[in-house]
């Protein structure tokens, strides 16, 4: 059934999801994206690499306005979604939660379910296609995505930040932004979203701020975590997908 959905999962002892990337899970040659140029929508396999998608969109004059703070070539769309890390164009174009309009997900019981729609605006049903975003492949595995894209001419591509080694991303209230930027190891900052990237774990943690490492892992609120664990029991009772990070 999965073949017809445009992505191939290789059978194994466990479904392995994007949070803990296992190349073997995904067929390396996903089918071509389906581009609706005039409607600014592309349907794409979650196993596609970000760079390949951008290259595919280019002849249509379209682009996904996503620029990682520190480049990470070769990473697949599903991984980016599972990690949901902030990016350089977020202030203007927002991020995955607004771009993923719908799609198809693989559930741990082997069923394949759709949610959302292939149009920019739909409130039909719960937004179950939000489930894979930021959840590191722990709940469902994204298979096919309907993404909202933009005219490439509208995007001013910022220069990537050159950095190797681990880094942290922190977002604060605007009123704390200046102080946040004074921390040592500042790699990048964006006043629009009051976000900065640091080469070390932030020491300045004012109220309401949050941070995550480059994999999108960071502290959670008790309710957020508790609900995540309940969701895990609901969507993956047998623990076939990646575990909820500590």
């Amino acid at each position: 059934m999965l073949e017809t959905l445009g992505a191939k999962l290789k059978p194994g002892g466990a479904w392995q999801a994007f949070g803990t990337v296992d190349e073997a899970c995904w067929d390396s040659s996903p089918p071509q994206p389906v581009v609706s140029k005039d409607d600014f929508i592309v349907t794409v396999s979650a196993g596609m690499r970000l760079d390949d998608l951008q290259a595919h969109l280019e002849p249509f004059g379209l682009a996904l306005p996503f620029v990682p703070i520190v480049p990470s070539p070769g990473r697949r769309l599903g991984e980016w979604i599972g990690q949901n890390v902030p990016h350089q164009l977020e202030g203007t174009f927002r991020s995955w939660r607004d771009w993923v309009l719908g799609g198809t997900m693989l559930l741990s019981d082997g069923s394949v379910a759709r949610s959302g729609a292939r149009v920019t605006k739909s409130v039909a049903g719960f937004d179950a296609h939000q489930l894979p975003i930021g959840t590191h492949g722990t709940l469902v595995v994204p298979v096919e995505l309907h993404l909202r894209v933009v005219a490439a001419s509208r995007v001013a591509w910022p220069a990537p930040v050159q950095h190797s080694g681990p880094f942290w991303i922190q977002r604060v209230l605007r009123t704390d932004f200046e102080a946040a930027c004074q921390q040592s190891g500042l790699l990048w900052s964006d006043p629009e979203t009051a976000t900065c990237a640091l080469s070390q774990r932030p020491g300045f943690c004012p109220e309401h701020s949050w941070w995550m490492d480059e994999r999108g892992v960071g502290p959670l609120s008790p309710l957020q975590r508790e609900t995540w664990l309940r969701a895990k029991a609901q969507f993956d009772p047998d623990g076939r997908l990646a575990g909820v990070p500590e």
Partner: peptide, 21 residues
């Protein structure tokens, strides 16, 4: 229960996105 954060985004799931709508 209070879902979400007082600044946009953050690590992990965004349950508020399921409650909205």
């Amino acid at each position: 229960q209070e879902f979400g954060r007082r600044v946009v985004g953050g690590p992990g799931p965004a349950w508020e996105r399921l409650v909205v709508g």
